[in-house]
Design a protein around this nucleic acid. Structure first.
Lengths: 112, 112
DNA sequence: TCCATAAAGTTCTTATTTGGAACTTGCTGC
DNA sequence: GCAGCAAGTTCCAAATAAGAACTTTATGGA
């Protein structure tokens, strides 16, 4: 079964997962909430390959979770901004954050 | 980059994703909250292959999100129960559910 | 002029994960 | 002793992801 097949599933959790249910997508969204908006920022911050970043941003724009807006003509440069729909996903990431903070503490500190 | 490399990441969202950040894992957890507990229930309900179900359950048990308990000796049969740690993940699934209900309505009704 | 750098992607090849189906094991009941 | 169930495992083919290099459009020097 392909995960895009979940998009008409009876369960709203499954439908949500069909769209954002993979780690790279969710990490990119986290970065959006941290204020990032550019392609290379996402690539560097998440550690995903440029290929993946490209693919996931495309999906997110298609789903109207992000909006692609030009911040420079010549050379054409774009940034990605959360739409209202995207912003409303914030609480979900906060539950992930809280659960992670409580149940998955870091053993060895990471230096920034 | 492999997603298990995220488990010591500075970001609690990333650490959470390293553990549960894929659609099958999250669907299995959804099923647990719906009261399911057996291998075949997960396989049927999620549509994941038995291979995947086996792998994900192993991970979840290892992470102490689920607990594998025998409900029958001879033949040995097991069920998977949410631990306290697992139960506390409930709010995350609820935010997914709520977001899905609001932003991803089903177009054509699925007949149960 | 020529070279370096930057952003935002795309392309390529190789490795890893999935998908799908069949097989296994230990028992129960007919 | 054959069929069926539950809980997996094994196998191979197909899909996805990883990693690095390349492209395009433009700016800032030396």
């Amino acid at each position: 079964m392909k995960w895009t097949d979940l998009d008409e599933n009876w369960c709203p959790v499954a439908r949500t997962l069909s769209l954002v249910g993979d780690r790279w997508t969710l990490l990119i969204l986290r970065d959006c909430f941290l204020g990032m908006s550019k392609f290379d920022e996402f690539a560097t911050s998440t550690g995903a390959t440029r290929h993946i970043v490209s693919d996931r941003l495309k999906r997110l724009v298609e789903a109207e979770i992000l909006e692609k807006v030009a911040y420079s003509e010549r050379p054409k440069r774009f940034e990605y901004k959360l739409t209202d729909k995207g912003n409303e996903f914030g609480p979900a990431l906060m539950t992930f954050r809280d659960w992670g903070k409580k149940h998955l503490p870091v053993r060895r500190p990471t230096h920034a």
